[in-house]
Design a protein around this nucleic acid. Sequence first.
DNA 1: CGGCAAACCTGCGAGC
DNA 2: TGCTCGCAGGTTTGCC
Length: 280
Amino acid sequence: MPELPEVETVCRGLAPHLEGRRLVRVEQRRPNLRTPFPPRFCERLTGRRVESVRRRAKYILMHLDDGGVLIAHLGMSGRMIIAPERPDSFDKHDHVVFETDAGTIVTFNDARRFGLMDLTVADALGDHPMLRNLGPEPLGNEFSGPELARRLAGRMTPIKAALLDQSVVAGLGNIYVSEALYQSGILPTRTAASLKPEEVDRLATAVREVLERAIAAGGSSLRDYRQASGELGYFQHQFAVYDREGEGCPDCDCDRSRTGGVQRIVQSGRSTFFCAARQR
DNA sequence: CGGCAAACCTGCGAGC
DNA sequence: TGCTCGCAGGTTTGCC
């Protein structure tokens, strides 16, 4: 899925088309995604004005003029597609269709249906089960080396798995964890507790930098992901290690015969990519 | 509680 | 051409 940079890019694409606009029609084309839609989903949205489109971790939050908040998650394959008018027909994976008072159509399409949508109210947003346990935003002021160190302390799980844990830091996924560990020179197999303060500082900096660079590139387009505008992201061309098994990493490109190049291992069921020559 | 595998669901590319 | 297998950006659950 979309990790933090992709969700951020989608929010920025949606905002100019939705903020200040009224939803004149909302259609739900199946009974559930990963979870059931909340009761009266379409009715509760219809007629509401969208006040803001924001991101928290990998969630899209749309604040409405009645104090309601639409929470949307893109799962692995979810997309938001903007069109200037109603299409002649819908794809079988077009699950939700929003129409604004400007005539714009925003379609949520999600082949694998790992995405979800829910409704809550702004006052209770922080208590929502999906948001309650999230760690700090890695691009926010509350995220720092010491804060990350505090959340990693004592954990004997590999640092790769710890960074995927959304309660440690919110928004990282499989791509950007590999990239941040590479950039900070830390092996993904190290236990979280084994990192020295200086290493955690480097890691926190790398997390921030990798995410910022990815957002600047419009995210990464591997299979399904597109910006809401339909454009591809292009950060995938800047991957140092992700999905580059056997290739030279950027720092040992000419030295692959000696270093063996980028390696792929499986940790808690998911691919991890790293360079053993650059990460310790 | 911590850590890991499996489950949720569909599509695509590789290999036979 | 068509089949099977493995793999995919996430999160939750249940088991040890």
